[in-house]
Simulated scan of single mutants.
Amino acid sequence: MAENKDDFEAIRQIHTVLTLHFIEEMKQSDIAQRLNLSTSKVNRLITQGRKLGMVRIAVESPFQRLVDLEKGLSEITGLRNTVVTPVVPGNPDTNLQQVGLAAANHLLETIRDGDVIAITGGKAVSAVVRNLNPERKFNVTVVPLTGGVQGKYYTDVNHLTTQLAEKLGGSAMLIHAPLFAENREQRDMLMEMNSTKEVFDLARNASVALVGIGSIKTPGSSYYDLHPLPNPDRELLLKDNVTAEFLAHLIREDGTVADYALNSRLVALNPTDLATCPLTIGVAAGGEKVQPIRAALNGHLINSLIVDEETASAVLESMRKIKNVA
């Protein structure tokens, strides 16, 4: 780099300044005083050092394994954003709340004044709302993506919509219709009502969608809290390669909507309606969500994922096997 004495002296001075600034963490004014240089000269030497490739910055996390998981998931799935949270073994509720907190912070980093935020119900979205702690108010509008089911705090999407709007300092528009209509004709009528249509049109063009990714294979799945029948035939539900619930729709392994009668009675947007949403954040925690997450990824239904470490590892491993990636 230095071919003569003058070059060597110049590089030595740059090296000294860089060492004092980046290694010893001295301010530029203090370096100038120590070396009898002007502050502008110190700044100029630092700039020269950068241009000469003498400065290399490495940023490492004490949770590097999580960073590696995030990178792996993003690379194999094409996700725009991936956040993986640490787990507390044997404590699923704590893990869900940790995922909710991470998703809440991700939401606050993402939204801007004037945004429309569309949300589903569910335990994961409820955890996001619960852990939201904004430092300022946002001029946003929050709308539901589905009709509601009253009875539990996480199934009433209107309640969650109102809570989220209040925490952000924005406004809420609600769907005054049940999640399941009695038949297809009633569903079509409800969807065409001005009050419903207005909210769903906003949701369809939302800046951000915050969605849960539901499992249906475990008895405790919140999908059965939504279901209009008290004892649905689970074997029937699992036919046609159905593996998950998304926007209350039963979906197949490839992310397409299943040919299931109740899907046609849903007062909700179709999963494909979110295709043009700039940011659709999927939130999930727990081993039972591996297949549902994979289905959502296969269908390109989300472009951002917030998930716990164990679930992320299982999703990544399964995706690598499918794509034959080491």
Rank of each mutant, 00 (worst) to 15 (best):
residue 28 Q to Y: 03
residue 256 T to R: 11
residue 176 H to P: 01
residue 121 G to Q: 11
residue 194 N to R: 08
residue 148 G to C: 01
residue 7 D to A: 14
residue 13 Q to W: 00
residue 211 V to L: 09
residue 10 A to C: 00
residue 105 N to L: 13
residue 100 G to F: 09
residue 257 V to S: 03
residue 172 A to K: 12
residue 286 G to Q: 09
residue 260 Y to E: 13
residue 235 E to K: 00
residue 56 R to N: 15
residue 115 D to A: 06
residue 297 L to G: 07
residue 313 S to H: 14
residue 246 F to V: 03
residue 187 R to G: 01
residue 243 T to R: 12
residue 91 N to A: 14
residue 6 D to C: 02
residue 115 D to K: 05
residue 174 L to Y: 07
residue 28 Q to T: 12
residue 34 R to P: 02
residue 242 V to I: 12
residue 25 E to G: 09
residue 320 R to Y: 09
residue 35 L to Q: 04
residue 206 A to Y: 04
residue 137 K to G: 15
residue 132 L to V: 13
residue 153 Y to S: 15
residue 58 A to T: 15
residue 209 A to P: 06
residue 185 E to C: 00
residue 134 P to M: 11
residue 27 K to I: 00
residue 264 S to D: 15
residue 273 D to M: 08
residue 40 S to Y: 05
residue 3 E to N: 12
residue 245 E to Y: 03
residue 315 V to G: 08
residue 227 H to F: 10
residue 242 V to G: 02
residue 29 S to W: 00
residue 67 V to H: 06
residue 45 L to M: 15
residue 204 R to K: 15
residue 309 E to C: 12
residue 85 T to S: 13
residue 142 V to T: 09
residue 325 V to N: 00
residue 182 E to N: 14
residue 303 N to F: 10
residue 118 A to T: 07
residue 315 V to S: 08
residue 131 N to P: 06
residue 246 F to I: 05
residue 167 K to W: 11
residue 215 S to Q: 10
residue 122 G to T: 12
residue 107 L to D: 10
residue 175 I to N: 09
residue 78 G to Q: 07
residue 233 D to Q: 02
residue 40 S to M: 13
residue 23 I to V: 15
residue 257 V to Q: 02
residue 83 V to T: 13
residue 69 L to P: 08
residue 116 V to Q: 01
residue 107 L to G: 10
residue 279 L to C: 10
residue 15 H to T: 14
residue 38 S to C: 04
residue 296 A to D: 05
residue 85 T to R: 10
residue 269 L to S: 09
residue 182 E to T: 14
